[in-house]
Amino acid sequence: MFRFIRILIADFTDILFPSLCLGCKQTLGDNERILCTTCRINLPETGQHREPYDQNLLNKFAGKVPVQFLASYLYFSKESIVQNLIHNFKYKGQKEAAKELANWYGQQLKSESNQFQDIDVIVGVPLHKSRFQQRGYNQADWIAQGLAEALNIPMRTDVLVRNEFKESQTRKNRLERWENVKTVFAVINPQAVKNKNVVVADDVLTTGATIEACAIELLKAGCKSVRVLTLAATHR
């Protein structure tokens, strides 16, 4: 009886407040999550995980920090479905969308790449505590969680911290972004990464300055290697 009532309430709620596709805003079908089938099929996937030694990608870190592997799930462009997705899970509380997208990506990586068989831990790029309190969650942690579940790799939130609050990176160039973040991260649990292969997860890769700053601290703490996964990246 109680199960029937719960189902009835859920169905009634769906009628009043239907789940909408975050891409086209149409009502989602019974087996659709986050995006409708059409929007999901049309996602601008990069396929970068099939190019593990793509020098165009790794050049973002050349001569700065040794990143062993770098790949992003989707191409980011302004006024696109990807921008809508990023905006929704960063600023509109749709953190589950970040996890779902990351899980889709993780399933691809698991079946199409051999880069993650020796990974020991996944960490998300941390937010400053004031930003975390303002937003209520860290979208990078939800991305890391989605990847971790798909790849069956432990995810930790007690490794990296962001000690300084800095203004938005959005309008800054590569040098300005680096100056803005080069001293803000720290490893608070070195034993969690010492002699281990680590994946750093984030939402969007632009210049790579934030990831670079995190990687430097992880390598200083003794981790064996750093690999990078993001949900989106600007075009080369």
Rank of each mutant, 00 (worst) to 15 (best):
Q26F: 01
G47L: 11
L58Y: 05
F61G: 11
N56D: 11
R50V: 06
L57N: 13
N42A: 12
P52I: 13
F61R: 07
L20C: 01
C24G: 02
C21D: 03
L35V: 08
C24F: 05
R40I: 01
L35M: 09
D14P: 00
T37V: 14
N56W: 04
R50W: 05
R40A: 14
D30E: 15
D54P: 01
T37P: 03
F17L: 10
R50F: 12
D54E: 10
N31D: 15
G23K: 03
A71M: 01
G23D: 04
Q55A: 12
E51H: 14
K64V: 07
V65D: 14
G63N: 07
L28W: 06
N56P: 00
L28F: 06
A62V: 09
T46C: 13
F17A: 00
Q68N: 11
Y53G: 09
R40S: 15
C36S: 11
F69G: 09
R33A: 06
T46Q: 12
L43D: 12
P44N: 11
K60A: 07
G47A: 14
T27H: 04
L22Y: 12
R33Q: 08
Q55R: 15
C39N: 08
L57I: 01
F69N: 08
L20T: 00
P66D: 07
V67K: 03
G63F: 02
N59T: 08
P66W: 09
F17H: 02
N42I: 02
T46P: 02
D30R: 04
G47W: 02
T27L: 06
A62W: 15
K60C: 03
Q26E: 09
L43S: 12
C24Q: 11
G29D: 04
L16D: 02
L57E: 05
F17I: 03
L16S: 05
N59P: 00
C21S: 13
C39D: 13
D30L: 06
C21K: 08
I41D: 15
S72C: 13
L43I: 07
R50E: 08
T46R: 04
C21H: 04
L22P: 00
N56C: 07
L57A: 14
F69P: 00
K60V: 04
E32S: 05
L16Y: 00
L22F: 10
G23Q: 02
G23F: 02
Y53F: 15
L20P: 00
I34W: 00
L28V: 03
S19V: 11
L16Q: 01
L22R: 01
L35Q: 07
N31W: 00
T38H: 08
A62I: 15
D30S: 12
E32Q: 15
G47H: 09
Q48T: 12
E32K: 07
H49E: 09
G23R: 01
D54I: 00
L35N: 11
G23P: 01
Q48K: 02
C39P: 12
C39R: 01
A71W: 01
